[in-house]
Simulated scan of single mutants.
Amino acid sequence: MDFSMWMLSLFDWLMFFIAALLIGMSKTGIQGISLLSIPLMVMVFGAKPSTGIILPILCFADLIAVFYYRRIAKWKYILKLLPSAFIGFGIALLVDKIIPPEGFKQLMGICLLIVFLFMLWSESKGKENNISTHWWYAPLFGILGGFTTMIGNAAGPVLAIYLLSMKLPKYSFVGTNAWFFLVINYLKIPVQVIAWNNINTTSLILDAFAIPFVIVGGILGIQLVRRLPEKGFKYFTIIMTFISVLLLII
């Protein structure tokens, strides 16, 4: 696949590097920012091809995040989500055979809108909300997470809502998020190479240019999350989710 046809302007490169910076910031703690990278990449590459560009960048950023937060993950939550996430993978592959590529952007937006509305509803319930204790809660988020990460690397808000509902402290939240996506994103690589054929030598060379921006973003994320209070961390995630949903649907 020749990506040069999509990279014809300085503006395209700028959007690409900004997306890489946002991904690095998100992975090291500023949850939700990476969602802004999705519409930027979709705008430059198209909805479905952009998933193959973003995934290697995400995988590199995952390594940075896990290296820094490697000892503070809550594995019991990760293990509850992973089995059903594989079901979400399968659903996404099935949808791929039904929905044309131009429909992927709208599909991503609809999925994120559902997640966002659930977030608002959950917040409105406050301490009276005990839905997270139901047996189907974690599998539901696992399926939705697996589905959205396959169709558009857009599972960030899904996991964010789940971990927020578990009332994890800020750093436990970030560490658990880092390890979950390290596992899930690396498992996606053979699927996208074999089934979707949107990761190749050309795309990997393009991704290599993003590495410095991912590293800078990772450092910025670490510094910024230290300065965010617990409530600020939570509300920042909600705001970023809302902005990203608007960018994908409008």
Rank of each mutant, 00 (worst) to 15 (best):
I211R: 03
L204Q: 07
K231S: 14
T202G: 15
V214K: 03
Y186R: 00
A20D: 02
L79P: 00
N130W: 07
T176A: 04
R70M: 13
F104D: 03
Y171F: 14
K48V: 14
Y69G: 07
F116G: 07
F104E: 03
L10P: 00
V174P: 00
M41R: 02
Q106P: 00
V115N: 05
T201L: 14
D12R: 03
V225S: 04
L163A: 09
L63H: 00
P101W: 12
T51R: 04
D12N: 14
L117C: 13
W135E: 07
S132R: 12
C59A: 15
A178N: 08
Y68K: 11
K48N: 10
V191L: 13
F89P: 07
F104A: 06
L35G: 13
L36C: 10
Y69D: 06
P56Q: 09
L248Q: 05
M43W: 15
L220E: 09
F236K: 04
I87C: 04
L21R: 03
V158H: 02
M166E: 11
Q106F: 13
K231C: 04
D207Y: 05
N129Q: 06
M41E: 03
I184G: 00
G145M: 09
F213K: 03
K27S: 09
T176C: 06
L79D: 06
E123N: 11
L220K: 09
W13Q: 08
K234G: 01
E128Y: 13
Q192I: 14
I205E: 14
V115I: 15
A155C: 08
F3Q: 04
K167C: 09
L112V: 10
P157C: 11
Y186M: 11
L107E: 06
P212F: 12
F233L: 11
I131Y: 09
V225C: 07
P139M: 08
A195G: 00
E230D: 15
A47D: 02
P229R: 10
V193E: 00
L187I: 12
V115D: 01
T237S: 15
I38R: 01
P83F: 10
N129R: 06
E102R: 07
G218H: 09
L168E: 01
I161N: 04
I78L: 10
G88S: 10
N198M: 12
I64P: 01
A19K: 05
S34D: 10
G218S: 12
M150P: 06
L22G: 03
K188H: 04
L204S: 08
A138F: 09
G218D: 09
I23M: 12
L224N: 04
L224V: 13
L247G: 07
Y68E: 10
I87N: 02
L247A: 14
P100K: 11
I189K: 02
G221Y: 06
T133P: 00
S37M: 05
M43I: 12
D96F: 14
Q106I: 14
I211V: 15
I189S: 01
I189A: 05
K74A: 11
S124Y: 12
Y162L: 11
L159Y: 06
L112C: 09
L182T: 04
I215P: 01
K127V: 15
W179Q: 03
I64V: 14
V42A: 08
P229I: 06
